[in-house]
Design a protein around this nucleic acid. Structure first.
Length: 750
RNA sequence: GCCCGGAUGGCGGAAUUGGUAGACGCAAGGGACUUAAAAUCCCUCGGCCGCAAGGCUGUGCCGGUUCGAGCCCGGCUCCGGGCACCA
C-alpha cells in the first residue's frame, strides 16, 4: 500500500502568486504536513516507496517516455485553442474562466490559437473500448461512462464537391440514409476552409460571426437549447446523389473536434438542422416518412427522427431507413463518393500547458533544424528554480533566460527551449507503475519488479476520476507496454470508486480549499476514534456530507469495549479449552452470535468494503456480550474469552492502537500484528430455530418460530394455527400459499 | 444540454439475490445514580388511531409488473459528479 504525492499543478502556482513565494516551497511544506497527518492516523503505508511527482527523479523518466512517444508518433504538435486573458496576457484554465471573463481581472476571455503538444490516445480508442468489456473488477457505471466518452459510432465519410473548385468537403455522418434530404452544409466556424470559402461580399459578416462564436464556451455550444445561429459563406457545394446545390453556412453548434467539423444538413430529419433551416429559410426535403403517412415539410413543426420508410431517394425508395443505411453505404463506396468509417467522440489528449509548475517538455526549437527532441543523454531538463510568479505576462518559465536559450543539439546554433510543461494528468498516469521500483536509477521501470507487482490488485479513487484520469492511466499503461516497459494490458484489476466528501454543498478538494483537517479530531479524541468514526459514517462508494456529529458515539463505543474487557478480565484469566458440548444454552447462543459476527464482518470487509456495517455488527456483538448473564458460570468462561478475543481481533483493522493494547492486556504473549484473523466455525453459526414471517395477501400478520429442519407442511400448520393469522383469513378461501424456505410464508386469500 | 449516479425517520445510515422497512449509531425526551454537575446505566423514539391487543399508513413524485416492490419497468422532480486546461 504505497503512498506518494501528485504535486505539480495549478493550485501550487496560484498559492505562490498569492503568498509571493515559490510553488516548490508551498508544495514541499504541504507534503510534510500531510505526511504528518497520515502518520498520526496510523495508516500502514509502505513509506519506503514514497515519491513526489515534482521530484526530478520522477519527472525525468516521464521526459524519457515523452521522447519515446515522440519517436513513435504518439506525441505530436498541432494547433488548438486556449482561453486567453488579453490583460493578464496569460492562458487560463477552464476553471479560471467565470462567465466568459478572467477570474483575476474580469477581462473578457478570448480564444487564442496555439501550436501545442498532443498524445495520440485515439490510436488506442478501439483497444480502450474493447477492454471495458474485460474489466470484471470495475464498477459498471465507470465502464459505461468510459464507453460513452470514447463514443464509437459507425457511419460514412462522404465527399461533397465544391461548386467551381476542384476540392471537396468531407463530412462524417451516421445518417447516410438521409443523404437525399441534405439541402445545405454547416461548417464549424473554426473549420480551416471557413474563410477560404467566404465570398468577398460576405467577409465582414463571416469574420464577425467567427469571432463571436469563439467567445462562447463549448458546453453552451453543444446545449440543445442553444439558439441556433449561422452565417452564409456565399459558396455552394453539390449533393453527390441529388446534384442539388447546397449553400454552405457556418453554424455555431458545429464543433471542429467531432467528425470532420462539417455537417451535411438534413433539416427534415435532424432537429438542429430543422431549427437552423427555419431560421434562415432554407429548403426542406423529406426522405423518410412514418409508415403509411405523408410528410409535408412546410407543415412540420419538428424534425422526424424515428424509423420510417424511404421516399424521394431514387432507387432506395420503399426500403426501411435502417436497411437503406446499409445499402446507401455500399452504394457510396461503389461509386467512390464516400466510404464506411468509424468515428470516435474521443479526441487526442492535449498535454501542453503554458505554466511553470509542471514537467518541462523536453524539446528544443531551432531555426535551422525545426523541432529537435532533447537527446536522451541530456536528460533531465530540470525545472529552474529562479522564476518569478506574478499571475501576469504568461508562463514564468518563458522569462527564465538561462532556461530558454540553448544550443541546438543537431547543428550547434543558438536555439530556444520549449517552455510548455506537461499536463499534470501525465504524472498521475504512471505513478502506480513507478511504485514498483521507486529507487530504480537506470530507467522509468525495472521490468522484473514491475512484472512482479503489476497489475494493481485494488485501485481506489474518487468517482470524479471515472473518465479522465482512469482513461489516461489505461492509455499510458498500453503505451508503456508497447514501448516494452511492462507486460500488462490494463493497470487496475479491481477498482473502488469512492464517493466524494461534500462540504458546504460541493466536493471537498484541495483546489476548492474547503477541507477539514483530521488533526483536530485526532487531537481531541485520538486517532482510533477518528478512524472508527470516518469508517462508520457511510460505505466508501457513497458521497458523504461531512459533519462530525456522531463522533461522540464512536468514542463512547471504544470506552465501553475497554471497560467490558477490564471487567471481564478476572473471569477469563485461566480458562480451559473451549468445548462446545460443555456450554450451557446461554453459552451456546453467545457462541453462535460470536461466530455469526465473525462471518459477517469478514464478508463485509473482504467482499464489499462495507466497513460501516462491519463495525455495526461488532457493536451488536459487544451489546450482546455486555448483557450476557451469568458471566461467572465456569462452564461459559471459555466462550467469554473467545468472544473478547474475537472482538479485539475484528476491531484491529479499524482501531489498531487500541486493539494492540487490549490484546496485550488479554494476556496474549505475541503481538496483535502477528495474530490471525479469526475464522468462524460453520457448525457454530447454524441456527436451531428459525423465525418465519407469515403474511396474508402480502401483509405481515405474524411471526412464528419453527425448528430449523421444519418442513413446509409443518410451517403451514404452525402458521395456520396462529391466532392473528386465523383472524385474518377467517371466512375467506385460501387460494395460494407461497413459502420461501426458512424465511417467509405468504397466504393468498380471496 | 449530453453522459453517469443518488434520493429511506429530526440526522448519518441498514435492509447483500424481489420476501419482516428503519439494524447500528447520533440527536431528542423521560428516568436512575449524585449535594450538584460530568460520566455511566435504564426506558421511549417514522406518522395517524387505540387503554391495550392491534389497525391503517409510510422508502422524492406519477403510473405499471408481481402473491409480494426501498429494490424491477415506463414517465417525471430535485440534488451531486464529469464534459477534455481543477485534479
Amino acid at each position: 500500500h504505497p503512498m506518494g504525492w501528485d504535486a505539480f499543478g495549478m493550485p501550487a502556482e496560484n498559492a505562490a502568486i498569492q503568498h509571493k513565494s515559490h510553488p516548490a516551497t508551498w508544495t514541499y511544506e504541504n507534503i510534510a504536513y500531510m505526511r504528518g497527518q497520515l502518520k498520526k492516523m496510523g495508516f500502514s503505508y509502505d513509506w519506503g516507496r514514497e515519491l513526489a511527482t515534482c521530484d526530478v527523479d520522477y519527472y525525468k523518466w516521464e521526459q524519457l517516455i515523452f521522447l519515446e512517444m515522440f519517436e513513435k508518433g504518439l506525441a505530436y504538435k498541432k494547433n488548438s485553442f486556449v482561453n486567453w486573458c488579453p490583460k493578464c496576457e496569460t492562458v487560463l484554465a477552464n476553471e479560471q474562466v467565470e462567465d466568459g471573463c478572467c477570474w483575476r481581472c474580469d477581462s473578457e476571455v478570448q480564444q487564442k490559437e496555439l501550436d501545442q503538444w498532443f498524445f495520440r490516445i485515439t490510436a488506442y480508442a478501439d483497444e480502450l473500448l474493447d477492454y471495458t468489456y474485460k474489466l470484471a473488477g470495475w464498477p459498471e457505471r465507470v465502464l459505461t461512462m468510459q464507453r460513452n466518452w470514447i463514443g464509437r459510432s459507425t457511419g460514412c465519410e462522404i465527399d461533397f464537391p465544391l461548386e467551381g473548385r476542384m476540392t471537396k468537403i468531407k463530412v462524417f455522418t451516421t445518417r447516410q440514409d438521409t443523404l437525399f434530404g441534405a439541402t445545405f452544409m454547416s461548417l464549424a466556424p473554426e473549420h480551416p476552409l471557413a474563410l477560404e470559402l467566404t465570398a468577398p461580399g460576405q467577409r465582414e459578416e463571416v469574420e464577425a460571426f467567427i469571432e463571436r462564436v469563439r467567445k462562447t464556451d463549448k458546453a453552451k455550444r453543444t446545449a440543445d437549447d442553444l439558439e441556433k445561429e449561422g452565417v452564409f459563406t456565399g459558396s455552394y457545394c453539390i449533393n453527390p446523389v441529388t446534384n442539388r446545390r447546397m449553400p454552405i453556412y457556418l453554424a455555431n453548434f458545429v464543433l471542429l473536434d467531432y467528425g470532420t467539423g462539417a455537417v451535411m444538413a438534413v433539416p427534415t430529419h435532424d432537429q438542429r438542422d430543422f431549427e437552423f433551416a427555419r431560421k434562415y429559410k432554407l429548403p426542406l426535403q423529406a426522405v423518410i416518412e412514418p409508415p403509411g403517412e405523408k410528410l409535408d415539410p412546410e407543415a412540420m413543426t419538428a424534425a422526424f427522427t424515428t424509423e420510417g420508410v424511404m421516399v424521394n431517394s431514387g432507387q432506395f425508395d420503399g426500403l426501411s431507413n435502417s436497411e437503406a443505411k446499409e445499402r446507401i453505404a455500399d452504394y457510396l463506396e461503389k461509386e467512390g463518393i464516400g466510404k464506411k468509417t468509424v468515428n470516435f467522440r474521443l479526441r487526442d489528449w492535449g498535454v501542453s500547458r503554458q505554466r511553470y509548475w509542471g514537467n518541462p517538455i523536453p524539446v528544443i526549437y531551432c531555426d535551422l533544424c525545426g523541432v529537435v527532441p532533447v537527446p536522451k543523454s541530456d536528460l533531465p531538463v530540470v525545472l529552474p528554480m529562479d522564476a518569478i510568479f506574478s499571475g501576469e505576462g504568461g508562463n514564468p518559465l518563458a522569462k527564465v533566460a538561462s532556461f530558454n536559450t540553448v544550443t541546438c543539439p543537431q547543428c550547434g546554433e543558438v536555439a530556444r527551449r520549449e517552455t510548455d510543461t506537461m499536463d499534470t494528468f501525465v504524472e498521475s498516469s504512471w505513478y502506480f507503475l513507478r511504485y514498483c521500483c521507486p529507487d530504480f536509477a537506470v530507467g522509468p521501470l525495472d521490468k522484473e519488479r514491475a512484472e512482479y507487482w503489476m497489475s494493481v490488485d485494488q485501485y481506489i479513487g474518487g468517482i470524479e476520476h471515472a473518465v479522465l484520469h482512469l482513461l489516461y492511466a489505461r492509455f499510458f499503461t498500453k503505451v508503456l507496454r508497447d514501448l516494452g516497459y511492462v507486460n500488462i494490458d490494463e493497470p487496475f484489476t479491481n477498482l473502488l470508486t469512492q464517493g466524494m466528501v461534500i462540504k458546504d454543498g460541493a466536493k471537498m478538494s484541495k483546489s476548492k480549499g474547503n477541507v477539514v483537517d483530521p488533526n483536530a479530531l485526532v487531537d481531541r479524541y485520538g486517532a482510533d476514534t477518528a478512524r472508527l468514526f470516518s469508517l462508520f459514517a457511510a460505505p466508501p462508494e457513497k458521497d458523504l456530507d461531512w459533519s462530525d456529529q456522531g463522533v461522540d458515539g464512536s468514542y463512547r463505543f471504544l470506552n465501553r469495549v475497554w471497560k467490558l474487557a477490564y471487567d471481564t478480565l478476572p473471569l477469563v484469566q485461566e480458562v480451559p479449552l473451549l468445548d462446545p458440548a460443555a456450554l450451557t444454552d446461554e453459552g451456546r447462543v453467545l457462541r453462535r452470535a460470536v461466530h455469526k459476527t465473525i462471518k459477517k464482518v469478514s464478508e463485509d470487509i473482504e467482499d464489499r468494503f462495507h466497513f460501516n456495517t462491519a463495525i455495526a455488527a461488532i457493536m451488536e456483538l459487544v451489546n450482546t456480550l455486555q448483557s450476557f448473564e451469568p458471566k461467572n458460570d465456569a462452564r461459559n468462561t471459555p466462550v467469554l474469552k473467545e468472544a473478547l478475543d474475537s472482538v479485539v481481533l475484528m476491531l484491529a483493522p479499524f482501531v489498531p492502537h487500541f486493539s494492540s493494547e487490549l490484546w496485550a492486556c488479554l494476556g496474549h504473549g505475541e503481538g496483535l500484528d502477528r495474530a490471525s484473523w479469526p475464522d468462524y466455525d460453520p457448525e457454530a453459526v447454524i441456527d436451531e430455530e428459525l423465525l418465519v414471517v407469515v403474511q396474508v395477501n402480502g401483509k405481515l400478520r405474524g411471526r412464528i418460530t419453527v425448528p430449523a429442519d421444519a418442513t413446509e407442511t409443518l410451517v403451514k400448520e404452525v402458521a395456520l394455527a396462529d391466532d392473528r393469522v386465523k383472524a385474518n383469513i377467517e371466512g375467506k378461501t385460501v387460494r395460494k400459499v407461497i413459502y420461501v424456505p426458512g424465511k417467509l410464508l405468504n397466504i393468498v386469500v380471496g
